[in-house]
Structure formats: C-alpha cells, structure tokens
Amino acid sequence: MSWFKRKKENIVTEDSDRSHDLPDGLWEKCPSCDEIMHKKQLETNLWTCVKCSFHFRIGSEQYIKILLDEDSFKEIDKKMRSADPLKFEDTKKYSDRINATIKKTGLYDAIKTGTGKLNSKPVAFGCMDFGFIGGSMGSVVGEKISRLIDKACKNNLPLILISQSGGARMMEGALSLMQMAKTSAKLTNLAAKSLPYISIVTDPTTGGTTASYAMLGDLIIAEPKALIGFAGPRVIKQTIGRDLPEGFQKSEFLVEKGFVDFISHRKELKNNINNVLSILT
C-alpha cells in the first residue's frame, strides 16, 4: 500500500521510510503507485518510477554516475573513518556498529567526497549515503566536507553537495554537533572567494544536516517529495498533539514556504546544475 494513503497515521514515520531503500531482486515495486518494474528498466530511468516518477532512494555511487562525466570522479579521503572519540556504547558498541556498517555497505562513512567533471566543468563533489547509520553526520562527515571545501577554495571549484541524512550522529555527542559549526564556518571561506555552492537535498534531510550546510547553498535544489526539515515529523506530531497536514515538510512545501529554489526531477538534475553553473562561473 502506498505510504501516502495511510488512513490511520497521516504522517510518515522514520521506520516506514525503509520502503524507499532499493530492495534486492530483479523486479521492483514502486512504493508509491505499485507499478512493477524490472531492475534494468528502473536503472535506465535513474531509479525513478516509470509510471509515477517516484524517486527511489539511491546512494553516492548512483549519484556520481548520474551527475558526473564518466570516470571523472576522483575520491579523496576515501578510507577516513570514525575514531569513536567518546567510546560510545548503547545497546551495542558504536565501534562494532561502525565495523558492521562498513562491512555491510562497503562505505567507510556517510559521505563520499572528491573532484569530478560535470559536462566537462571541474567541480568539488560530495554525496551522502543514508545507508550508513542513517546518513548521520559525525566527525568524519564534517572533516570530509571541510577538506572538500578547502580543495574547492584552493582549486577555484564550485561545490556540489547532495544531502541525505537523519542529522548529527548521536554516538559522537557534542563533536557531531560541532560539525554543524565547522562546515558552516568553512563555507564562509568558499563564499569569500565567490565560488558557488549548490546544495541538493534528497529524501530525507533532517536535523543538524538541514540546520547547517544543506540550507546554506547559494542554490538549494530538492528532489520531488523529499522529506526536508529540522525536527522529524514524529517529534512535531508529539509536540503539537495533532496530525500533520499532508505534504508537510516535503520538497513542494519548502518551495512554497521559500526555503528551496526549485524541485528537479533526477533526470533533469545534471542539466539544471550545468545551466546554473554556466552563469555563476
């Protein structure tokens, strides 16, 4: 059943978001319109539904393929990983969680950064992965973005960041919080050099990620129907004690409220960025 048409609960909780993730197998069912597609067909359509344009959640590997010229991406700080500075432990050890996630995803943390070319234009590029502990921002994400901005400043490159994140990572406590200040502070260097920063927000982008670099783009472009907000819908619902209006905190809502420049279909994304960069650079 589509999660937009739920009768009992009018809001989408984080847990139900799992349905966005790409399932295994040859055939995929669109969570929005129930259309069944072959995986190849979905891939050719850039992981958007052929019938209703529902945007499946994809990771950094796929975005690199979609946005950057073939084989142009050169990753930096690839193996940087969390130092577990607090020796954090809840129901399990954070260090075990990290190791298990690295093994499962083949990623070292929740963002890939590097340089590449977009329609032959050199760019500094970063893309988050929701699959790595909810795309949460800890020291590694902060440090990688920070170094990416340094590189952009040094080589006069425009910056493109794709956000997909539940927010700051709890397991690094105040250090995660400080990554918000760190990335924002670094962005002032980029701005001082008049280098453009294009922030692309995808489903979902919430918490400390939204409240720092995701909202600081010269341009903010959203994918359709992505959840974008500060507090999560469940928390807001608890606070105000009533259901949230349909479409609340979705891309279309943010455009209407004036916090996103425009919504771009994944197929148009590269072209849209190229158009903007051709004028800003």
Partner: peptide, 26 residues
Amino acid sequence: GAFPGLEAEERGQAEAIARNLFEMSK
C-alpha cells in the same frame, strides 16, 4: 532545544539556525 513545532518548520527553523552558524563564523 529549538522548538519542534509546525510553524517553526514553516518559517524555516533549520535555515535560521544554519544562517546563524554561517554569519557568526565571520
């Protein structure tokens, strides 16, 4: 904490905080 309310989201709680981090840095 920053207020997790409906109107706070409508008026851009995240943007307001992000803007302050950016502007306070410089």
